[in-house]
Amino acid sequence: MLTMVPKTGPEGMVAMTAHPEDGLPEDGTGQLQAHFDETIERGRRIEPRDWMPDAYRSTVIRQIAQHAHSEIIGMQPEGNWITRAPSLRRKAILIAKVQDEAGHGMYLYSAAETLGADRADLTDKLLNGRQKYSSIFNYPTLTYADVGVIGWLVDGAAICNQVPLCRSSYGPYARAMVRICKEESFHQRQGFELLLTMMRGSAAQRAMVQDATNRFWWPSLMMFGPPDDQSPHTAQSMAWGIKRHTNDELRQRFVDMTVPQADKLGVTLPDPELKWNAERGHYDFGSVDWDEFMAVVKGNGPCNAQRMARRRAAHEEGAWVREAAAAYAAKHPLRRGEAA
């Protein structure tokens, strides 16, 4: 008989692993692995209570958590322009968008928790640098046009990354992604619409849009991660069904989708090597500055310290509030079934 025993994994969480008792055939785990492999092969979902290899569990937790952190940190660069939005309608749209991002973060933390992670623990890992968030949010939003460009380019890149994840092998993550993708497509449309309005407006507005595009184009390409030949984990992630396309494939897809959109807007993308290649059926584009990418990922981007400081302050300054709520709940246990 196999017993399920707790085993501490690399993230400090508890995994349930099969442990053969004495005198029993050792291919118990082998059968579970085979069942897992077959589920993946058939394009079916792994659900929270299914057996899974420790490495799959810890990799998925990390992937989902970093995605969640990105949504929460992403609230800051856009939130930066809420109080200064130049029309009340735009202000309302931006508040709703940033609110959605908080919601997306929560859906994703919720998915990570089905694997045995704890949200407070994941927050600690974010704040002490052991887990990361998308590097794009380490760039500053310097003008109101940045709001539109983030909607267009950053949400556009995110959608490219995220639509395939709707078919992630991990069930709760796939389901969270479907909900998120629906909302994000709305955000991208809003951003694009703002840019269209500005490009049809004054010379100053047009210049603002072009300037924002010049600053966000290359960092958007970096959102897809390092080139395939520098991504050692890609093969395993694809074998596990938690990554569906390589970084370079998605990056190419994004460029192909975005160039016609830039033409429609009337903005120039800041890449002199950008050119349609009829033979390949794709746009050729210039080289990303991977040194800049690595510097930002390592913590030396323009806004890394600022983003972390804000998140840390909210978390630490909120501790007395969270504790008070827990203390009140302990003092006043509610009868079950009472409606709010």
Binding site: T83, I95, M106, G318, V321
Partner: peptide
């Protein structure tokens, strides 16, 4: 609005944005 990204818990961010 000035409280957004400063709330003591993520669920409160959603509630605050609703009110704003």
């Amino acid at each position: 609005q000035q409280w957004m990204t400063r709330m003591p818990e993520l669920e409160e961010e959603t509630a605050l944005a609703n009110i704003a």
